[in-house]
Design a binder for these strands. Structure first.
Lengths: 308, 308
DNA sequence: CATCGCGTTGCAAAAAATGCACCACCACCG
DNA sequence: CGGTGGTGGTGCATTTTTTGCAACGCGATG
């Protein structure tokens, strides 16, 4: 679409922080770029950028305009997808921002299931922590977000939510593996390994530990849930994760037990979208499938949660 | 804004039903218009119009695109108003679709009150029946709608709602004026004058009459509430209206009495906007003022409703 | 004080949009 | 049955808009 070229240029300038660099990125001359932007500002009736020595930066008006552009852009792709849909093509694209815990089992299964019915639909899966995921929604970079304990920005609209208790993951021969449910103090007495602070699991742990005047003092702190799962096989330590990320690992050495809800209330795994936005058909349908899957996952695993 | 020119042309074509006529309306040549539209269709990847002998008409894809344009357009004016707001100009424009009953008293008072605080804000007031008013919202022609008994389309999002009982309006010397509250059957026995079918008052009347195996048989059927109020002064007939439209008439000859709620349940006067839409600042603020005014109007008139 | 990178501007060249004349087509009608 | 008046579409010259190139002024920086 041609009409939005100026907005694309504005976006490029924002990214580059400088008109000349942006011009190079977009393969046009700096003069052309500058004039387009100046003309736009004039037509619009307000400046979008602060001109400072060394480059430019968006001012508040510019932020609003850029947001408008992103919303417009997103609505346009929704329209295209709807049009494609009514001509029977069944194409489309779903972009979802999710936390790591969904990667091993839940999301691949769901995507495969959806694609089995709609082979024309493509996906992008962006792994983000909970703050980033909400940011993705707000900038229309992702249609959906599936995150554990999001920070609840105002723009986040919940589609479905299920509880997830934090689980301890360890080797089968670990002493703690003998009990069906663990107390938090026993866990913190053990050498442990934990995700870094920006993840919901750690957030819950920190909060609960502080309440009991304890501290989470991990031997290894990491951003990778995969590392946690693998590390506990190599040393006599325990790790923390949520159960939805703990399915389908062949290794019988790896076991997990819930932390007692008395010490650590379950967190929420939440599927959401940008508030007020109309999603493209493909994304909307996938969201509905996810919501259904989450609900049934929750109801089937709830009564068993003590046994895991 | 220049980028949206093509959309404006599309809108003109839809209005005119023919490319040549639209071209004339927009002061360009038919060839230029045709080529712009064809180019857009090519870029967009789908035809927007059915070409039939004698003109063109939107196809479903075209409807979607047109809707996208209107949403975009409306969002842009919202952004402009927000930008104006943050530069401290306090300008803006509010467009509201409302039913006639709001014209004599409520709306003028509210607009004047708002403009006293924000003199830079301008208004357009569009008088529409309840179906048209919702249509206005859906096409972004109005920001707000204030209507009696709307048809509740899916796109209508309620901001505030207050009950309004149908009142009988008549001359002070009319026999029925003696009672504080009237039964519907007594009203229908009298010669009466009523709004036409598309108005909420008539809708309620028809429904209630049918329930009592009676019929509304007006001597005069009109679209003008003002005519009703004036006519009852000239002949011994009764009229029907809602109380919010019956304030502040100097003529002491004009009296009104509620119809008993046993016969005619009160209808709802509803303030609403397009679902999911972010209103321009001025409209949003005015909507909040209206909501407050409605609420206090409702609570102050409720206990008195039997006396009116 | 020279230098470097920035945004901006004058001017000519390139590209895009437009107007004009005309075509093919279809419905209608004498 | 052949005008006639309407439709959308097209080739080409013209006008308008956009772009690239070179240069300028200006502030920060070394």
């Amino acid at each position: 679409m041609r009409h939005l070229q100026t907005f694309r240029l504005i976006e490029a300038v924002v990214r580059a922080g400088s008109m000349r660099k942006a011009a190079e990125d977009m393969n046009i001359t700096a003069s052309a770029l500058v004039r387009r932007i100046n003309r736009f500002e004039q037509e619009f009736g307000a400046e979008l950028f602060e001109r400072l020595p060394g480059g430019v930066r968006l001012n508040p008006a510019g932020e609003l305009v850029l947001h408008h552009y992103r919303a417009t852009q997103s609505d346009l792709t929704r329209v295209r997808s709807q049009v494609a849909d009514l001509s029977g093509e069944r194409r489309g694209h779903v972009s979802i921002a999710c936390s790591q815990a969904l990667l091993p089992y839940f999301l691949p299964q769901q995507i495969a299931r959806y694609r089995a019915e709609h082979p024309g639909v493509t996906f992008s899966v962006n792994v983000r922590d909970r703050a980033q995921a909400e940011q993705e929604l707000a900038t229309y970079s992702s249609d959906l977000a599936l995150v554990f304990e999001p920070v609840y920005l105002v723009d986040f609209q919940v589609i479905e939510t299920i509880p997830q208790a934090v689980n301890v993951v360890m080797r089968a021969d670990h002493p703690l593996a003998a009990k069906p449910e663990l107390r938090l103090r026993d866990c913190l007495d053990e050498p442990h390994i934990a995700p870094s602070a920006k993840y919901g699991v750690r957030h819950l742990l920190d909060f609960a530990a502080r309440r009991g005047s304890r501290r989470v003092a991990p031997l290894v702190e990491t951003e990778s849930f995969e590392l946690i799962r693998n590390y506990v096989l190599h040393e006599r330590v325990i790790g923390f994760q949520i159960p939805i990320g703990l399915h389908g690992f062949g290794d019988p050495q790896l076991v997990f037990r819930p932390v007692s809800e008395r010490d650590l209330p379950p967190g929420n795994l939440i599927l959401g979208q940008m508030r007020g936005r109309t999603l493209p058909v493909a994304s909307a349908r996938f969201a509905m499938q996810l919501a259904g899957a989450l609900k049934s996952y929750s109801s089937e695993s709830d009564p068993l949660s003590a046994r895991r």
